[in-house]
Design a protein around this nucleic acid. Structure first.
Length: 103
DNA sequence: CAAGTGACAATAA
DNA sequence: TTTATTGCCACTT
C-alpha cells in the first residue's frame, strides 16, 4: 500500500538525529527506491509538522524545499539553525558537515 | 483511462 | 557551471 510507504518515510525522517539532515534521495535509498519525489510527496501529504521533522529533509544540493508548508523556506531555515545546523551563503545546508550518516 | 503536475535527482551536453 | 533530458511514481483533473 502506498500509505505504508508514507509511513516508512516518516519513520526514517524521525530517525534523523538532531543536528543532522537527510536528502530526499537518501531517504528514498533507505526505502529501497530511487524516487525522491515520492518522499517529497509523503512529507507534503503529512500536515502534522509537529510529528515529523520535515525540516530536516532537504534537496540533494542541501537547498531547502521551495514550497515549504509552514511559512516558506525561511521557517525551515530558522528551524534548522535552531537544531544547530550551519548554513552556507545561498541558504544552503552544509551537507558535508550535517548530512545524516545512517546506520 | 489518459494526460498533467509535483516538497527530486542523476546524467548528458 | 548551467540548462536540458529522463526516470520515477503518486495524486489530480
Amino acid at each position: 500500500m502506498t500509505k505504508d510507504f508514507f509511513n516508512r518515510v516518516y519513520e526514517v525522517v524521525q530517525r534523523i538525529p538532531l543536528g543532522k539532515v537527510a536528502t530526499y534521495r537518501l531517504v528514498a535509498d533507505i526505502l529501497d527506491t530511487r524516487d525522491a519525489r515520492r518522499v517529497g510527496h509523503a512529507l507534503h501529504a503529512n500536515p502534522d509538522g509537529s510529528r515529523t521533522p520535515c525540516h530536516r529533509v532537504v534537496f540533494s544540493d542541501g537547498r531547502l524545499a521551495p514550497g515549504y508548508a509552514f511559512g516558506g523556506p525561511n521557517e525551515q531555515h530558522r528551524r534548522l539553525e535552531l537544531e544547530g545546523i550551519s548554513f552556507s551563503s545561498d541558504d544552503k545546508v552544509d551537507l558535508s558537515l550535517h548530512l545524516w550518516h545512517p546506520d
